[in-house]
């Protein structure tokens, strides 16, 4: 397999193991490109990519833009503020208008689950989901897997514990589909109020006791806890959340000695993760960010660039 036989990247749930493997392998070659003194290849010259963000984002958007530019694509960026979106234009009309301008691929973030699926049906251009509501964030799932691969040289047989607000997390969903397809065991842990309905029917273990969830883990992926969740009554206080569900050094002793700790950012230091863990030896959080650019280059290259070897491009 040397190319993706699909128009869109909407989620990891509907992706095969060999597709995921291809993306990860391609991302590793892209890392080589990013390590060169001149971090640019001409592969996507003449292609136009549009980031269409209906939710605020700094790192995902910048990461996609850097990836597109490293492949020499042209990038235009649209966000909800200062666009016709605030004038009440429908998503359908926004997409059709941009397509008519010659957009080859849309990178889309939206607060509604399924919005990229709607986009994919509406336009002939490629659509990459950069996070849709509580549904999926496939490039984050892929960059998390690449980061684990960097450190563990394999995914199969690993135990990956994801801690925090699972209910609202698209990162957790993309991770669980990707990791389980690659043969890892996934544990989801958090307060009962922040575990989704019938989570026990997912191909994962679910825990409300974080100590048990961390026991013997190879990877601990800590999710951001949003302060608004406390105000909505999902848990009583930041203090209690940090005490019962926060990842600290003490808790990490239950994991494997070579455990790595990940966080999709942005972090609330002292709440879901203590500073000594975030800055400690097991943390690979900045590696995730670097890998994000490589994974997004791989996605753009495989969707828009065809199967040529990037090294000779």
């Amino acid at each position: 397999m040397d190319r993706l036989e699909r128009k869109d990247i909407l989620g990891l749930q509907d992706m095969t193991q060999s597709e995921i493997q291809l993306i990860l392998d391609t991302a590793i070659s892209m890392k080589a490109v990013l390590a060169r003194p001149v971090k640019k290849v001409p592969t996507l010259r003449g292609k136009t990519i549009c980031t269409l963000f209906y939710e605020p984002s700094t790192r995902t958007r910048t990461s996609f833009e850097m990836a597109a530019k490293a492949l020499s694509a042209d990038v235009s960026s649209i966000s909800t503020a200062g666009s016709s979106i605030v004038k009440g234009e429908s998503l359908k009309d926004t997409l059709l208008t941009l397509q008519a301008m010659g957009i080859d691929a849309f990178i889309m973030r939206h607060q509604a689950g399924g919005a990229p699926h709607f986009a994919a049906r509406t336009v002939q251009s490629h659509v990459i989901n950069a996070g849709d509501g509580m549904h999926e964030h496939p490039s984050q799932g892929l960059l998390d897997m690449l980061t684990i691969l960097d450190n563990k040289r394999r995914l199969e047989g690993l135990v990956v514990t994801i801690v925090g607000d699972i209910l609202h997390s698209r990162v957790a969903r993309s991770n669980l589909w990707g990791l389980t397809k690659m043969g890892a065991t996934v544990r989801l842990a958090g307060p009962k109020t922040l575990l989704p309905a019938e989570a026990e029917r997912l191909p994962v273990e679910t825990h409300t006791n974080v100590d048990a969830a961390v026991e013997g883990a190879d990877v601990v992926n800590v999710l951001r806890i949003q302060l608004e969740r406390m105000n909505s009554g999902f848990f009583p206080s930041i203090r209690e959340y940090a005490r019962l569900f926060g990842i600290n050094k003490e808790r990490l002793r239950r994991a494997k000695p070579d455990v790595i700790v990940m966080h999709p950012g942005p972090m609330n230091r002292g709440i879901e993760i203590t500073p000594d863990v975030a800055d400690g030896d097991f943390a690979v959080i900045t590696d995730q960010v670097t890998n994000g650019v490589a994974v997004r280059m791989a996605l753009l290259y495989l969707l828009l660039g065809g199967g040529r070897n990037v090294g000779t491009a």
């Binding site: 309905a197 019938e198 989570a199």
Partner: peptide
Amino acid sequence: EGITSTVLGLRGMP
């Protein structure tokens, strides 16, 4: 609300 809403990431009505 159920496994399908969980997978789709949509808010469910129990």
